[in-house]
Design a protein around this nucleic acid. Structure first.
Lengths: 244, 244
DNA sequence: ACCTGAACACCGTTCAAGT
DNA sequence: ACCTGAACACCGTTCAAGT
């Protein structure tokens, strides 16, 4: 809506700056929402902003820069409100579910996040700061917190991909005869999922998709609960060991 | 080396088929090894095989098809030898480490794997069959096995991305002042990593990078051990519960 | 059936020229 | 400083023509 119909601009510096990081981020998000990441091209982005494609390069160095802008914006939507307010495991649950849900629709960003330094992503660092505070409160030793966060994040990113997978991804087709055990396991899983449509019981998905427990949700729940209990157990050692 | 210098071929069907899935896979792997995934283009692939780019489309429907070919080939390199021969947790460890190590250098494939059906990936299904057998042997109920595999796989894929990240990815730069807790945790982690170069103690990385415990290795170890112990604990319930 | 060669509809990015 | 417009060096894919 910004520059829908606008008097054609001549070359040369405009009286006031037309573009900015906030405008670019907003326009990119709109494009992604409409057509997915295949719709996010520098041309389409420029068109939506009412400028020539080359004008974008006065504000970003590359398309990867645009993706970083979007990523950092999304990080502000990850729910860290549990840290400092709830028990550690409950706060981690809330954080992990919202983190996965945000990036499930933005999996093309994961390549970028996992590789780019956080130096130019202030919202991202703010998110990490809140998580770190929560871990310190729960008694985690400083030097192990980053490993724990990275481990949880790796699980979350991988699980975000899983959300986008089709339900029949494990259909073995003609390979079923040669692989009976796996095929049977796949079958019994899908039966279970279709049988219990709304099994909202113990491990909840706080502030996330309330009902419709899909396959990816049940796998995420199983892994997250295992990670949480396993990480907690690694905190209080049963016997004194030489430091690792 | 296949068609390095070859007499120029005229149009029309050649006397014997020049291409095939095996040739294409091999050539693609060579290109990836040399120049990474940015070097894997249909043009480069065709050049290496001594044909015109359009000739490839007689054997694959798209570039995604080529990636599936490569993925399935790599799956044969994942070590499932522990299942049926070792205790469950040891077999999972061996499998998980080799799985991560294989795909750490092939992260662009993860988008494909996570979304494409396994119907046309026989090696992949064979891998899953071996893993399923190992879980059944360990007493896992059939209908929960796929969730457990998916959870482990999600962690593995996410961790594969982490391997490719630069060591200084968490450097907060000018943001350090506003985020002291996170910055301190990052600092103490890197000190620990540089201090203990070869801390090969308890949780081993069977058949993987023997020494040089990098940051990504320590995070992977922490998460994997937590997942294994957490999943094991979820197997034998302390008290009887209504089925979930 | 399986190849060549030309063409199509795109990409991201650069750069001189303009104000 | 910040825009336009043209150009560059690519992509993946299609298709008629050939044997």
């Amino acid at each position: 809506m910004v520059a829908a119909q606008q008097a054609k601009r001549r070359a040369g510096r405009p009286p006031s700056a037309v573009l900015g990081p906030a405008h670019i981020t907003k326009a990119a998000l709109k494009l992604i929402e409409q057509d997915g990441y295949k719709g996010l091209t520098m041309s389409a982005l420029a068109r939506r902003l009412g400028v020539a494609p080359s004008a974008l390069y006065n504000h970003v160095a590359s398309k990867a820069d645009v993706l970083l802008l979007v990523e950092d914006h999304l990080m502000a939507g990850v729910d860290v409100s549990g840290f400092g307010a709830e028990p550690w495991d409950e706060a981690v649950r809330r954080w992990a579910w919202s983190y996965r849900n945000v990036f499930a629709r933005h999996t093309p960003l994961i390549n970028v996040i996992a590789v780019l330094p956080v130096t130019n992503a202030p919202q991202t660092v703010t998110m990490y700061e809140a998580v770190t505070a929560g871990f310190l409160d729960a008694g985690w030793p400083q030097e192990r917190i980053i490993d724990a966060i990275v481990a949880l994040e790796s699980f979350i990113f991988g699980s975000a991909f899983d959300v986008t997978a089709p339900e029949d991804i494990f259909d073995t087709g003609t390979l079923a005869a040669d692989n009976p055990l796996f095929s049977a396991a796949v079958r019994s899983r899908s039966i279970r999922n279709s049988a219990s449509p709304g099994s909202g019981s113990a491990a909840g998905s706080s502030s996330s998709s309330s009902s419709s427990s899909s396959s990816s949700d049940s796998a995420f729940r199983l892994g997250l609960e295992a990670l949480i209990s396993g990480l907690r157990a690694s905190l209080d050692p049963v016997e004194a060991k030489p430091a690792v």
